[in-house]
Design a protein around this nucleic acid. Sequence first.
DNA 1: TTCGATTGTTATATACCATTACAATTTACC
DNA 2: GGTAAATTGTAATGGTATATAACAATCGAA
Lengths: 158, 158
Amino acid sequence: MRNHASRGPRPSNFARVPGIDYSDLEDYYGYALRRAQVAAFGAFFRATAGAGITPPRFTALVILDANPGITQTILGKVLGTARSGAMSLTDWLVDRGLAERRHREHDGRVWGLHLTPKGTSLLGRLRRRIRSREGAFIARLAPGERTMLKSLLAKLAG
Amino acid sequence: MRNHASRGPRPSNFARVPGIDYSDLEDYYGYALRRAQVAAFGAFFRATAGAGITPPRFTALVILDANPGITQTILGKVLGTARSGAMSLTDWLVDRGLAERRHREHDGRVWGLHLTPKGTSLLGRLRRRIRSREGAFIARLAPGERTMLKSLLAKLAG
DNA sequence: TTCGATTGTTATATACCATTACAATTTACC
DNA sequence: GGTAAATTGTAATGGTATATAACAATCGAA
């Protein structure tokens, strides 16, 4: 049986397998970070199931909302992908009426990217649902631990 | 010009772009975890550049070393992938002489997976290089912060 | 013994992303 | 001012990872 949630990404199942010796795997920061990140992606996936929204697409919506008129090249830099990747991501948003390309005044090469009203309202809905799901996910940590975690992650990402 | 490092994975460039308003993006745990994880993957990539070793492949080496005779299905469960994915990963290891399939006594269906001496020695080298690179990466945190981070990540992954 | 479950395997499809090349356009330089 | 170099968006192509589905061989249980 095929349900509508088959559209969009699938969270990988990273559950511990009983009876397996994981040796020093958890000692690697990369592995520990990856496991936590996969768990967080599970929350994201439950919040966006069926909408086809992936993390990069959500990021693009947020960035377009906060930086109207941004170019595709800059969007690609923010997402960490090549220009062609920003291109197809933008196509995806435009095809669904969530964003639009507008010509710019002083440069005939570039398009300015803007959210449509539909994109803006979808973003609002996604924000609420993702925050709610992340709230349930992060409930495993005490409030003080959460701020500590964010501070540590920010240091590592910088 | 094409260098040998083009084999294997490429770390995505997640650097902050100046002049861009990131809005509430950093407030999402998924995004913060992803950024830190990408940074950690950069360390992993520098340690394994040119060897074609990806995180799942390294994980498989560790698991095979600690659980000789494990089946492909179980390996797939540990990695969180479908059986066919464990199959092609095992093929990759076998093709390079790092692992081998051995028939089992009591069950004609399954293969037991084992590291070859070549696989064992590669694993040893990888462990040293990854630990060294991760050490440089994690130096951004004080010793106390590191143990705190691991404890928090373990809670989230569980 | 027969039927369902499991394992490995193969084939197929898809999603994502990089590289490359190119035309239009802008900028820099002499 | 005119030409070369750089930038932008775009399209074509390919590679990699991973999922689903189907199948044969084998095992286990009713």
